[in-house]
Amino acid sequence: MARNRDPFTQALSSLRERIHSGTLAGGSPVIVQDEAERLRLSTTPIREALARLSGEGLVERASSGGYVTLRFDATAARDRWAMHAHYVRIAVELNARALGALRPPAPPFDASRPIAAANRLFAAIVCSAGNQVLWDAFQKVSGQLDLVRRHETVLFDDLGDEALGLYAAYSEEIAPGFVATVGRYHDRRIGAAGALAALVFGCAGAPVAAAVEERE
């Protein structure tokens, strides 16, 4: 049975990586036949993978009936960062109601990968809340934000300190302190949404500089 899923897994992994890496830029059509030939697969697993990615919000149905990758502009980035923050806050509240001052354990902190470390902490908090609807919504938004996360190192030079601060705030017993830290983390990215979106689109020079100036 697992063997029958291999082509689907291969197609899904390849398409997701190409979207996250920017190889398939935002708003680009995804040609089923071209992807099938590239991966030396039939069109069936490609279509299945695109249906899954559509559910994740990484591709959208085009008016022509095919698929296009999500065009992640500044407004989309701002909205998704806002929802990401909202989901984390809901999870913190649910955990506080269930556990009081106790906190679900944080995942190990990896100083060499601060972006991933922060993501793992947020995911652990939401997962531990035990709400499947909340978890599904969080995963979808978080997966879409992976399109811009990879560019954070261009704009922020203190990601390690920021992630360490998140972990430190989470370890404290006073929940409002952590919620405030989460708010600052997300507000920073909401403010930088224009610059991050410009980087996703592959803009360089003046457009990116203008977006940075706008957020400042």
Rank of each mutant, 00 (worst) to 15 (best):
S171K: 11
A106S: 07
S128Q: 04
H151K: 04
S142G: 09
S171I: 08
A180T: 03
G177V: 11
H86N: 13
T153K: 13
G183F: 01
F122T: 04
I190V: 12
R103K: 13
V148T: 01
Y167F: 08
E162N: 11
C127D: 15
D73A: 04
H186A: 15
T153D: 13
I125C: 09
V68C: 10
R188T: 02
R103N: 06
H84V: 02
G177N: 15
G177D: 14
D73F: 00
L102W: 07
S64R: 11
D79L: 11
A96V: 12
R71H: 02
S128K: 06
R71D: 04
F156C: 01
R71C: 00
P105F: 06
P108Q: 02
L134E: 06
L166V: 09
A117T: 02
F178T: 00
H186K: 12
H84S: 11
D187N: 15
P108G: 04
W81I: 08
A193H: 02
R189P: 00
G143W: 03
I174C: 13
D73R: 00
R120A: 14
L99Y: 07
L147D: 01
F109E: 09
L99S: 12
E93T: 12
R103H: 11
R188N: 02
K140F: 04
G165M: 05
L134N: 06
A118Y: 03
P114L: 01
F138E: 02
G66Q: 06
P104G: 11
F109H: 10
L102V: 11
V141M: 10
Y185L: 00
S171W: 01
W81Q: 12
A195T: 04
W81F: 15
F109Q: 12
L164S: 13
A76I: 00
V68T: 08
S142A: 14
L102D: 15
L134W: 04
G165K: 05
L159W: 04
V154F: 08
G160P: 03
T181K: 14
V154Q: 14
A96K: 12
A118P: 02
A116E: 15
R103A: 12
A82M: 00
D136I: 01
V68M: 07
A195R: 00
A123I: 00
F178G: 05
A169R: 06
L159H: 06
R97Y: 09
L102C: 10
P105Q: 08
L145M: 05
P104Q: 13
P176K: 10
L155Y: 04
Y170C: 13
G177S: 15
A101I: 11
G165Y: 05
R80S: 08
V141Y: 03
Q132F: 06
V148P: 03
A192E: 06
L159S: 09
G100V: 01
R188S: 03
A101T: 12
F122I: 07
S142L: 05
D161H: 01
F122Y: 10
A180E: 10
W135C: 10
F138Q: 06
G177A: 15
R189E: 02
L70H: 05
T153A: 15
A175V: 12
L70C: 07
L147T: 02
A175Y: 03
A116W: 08
A111T: 07
Q139E: 14
A118D: 08
L121P: 09
L102I: 11
A76E: 09
A117E: 05
D146A: 13
Y170G: 13
V133H: 15
A96C: 13
I190Y: 02
G183Q: 12
D146F: 01
A123D: 03
D158H: 08
Y67T: 07
L94Q: 14
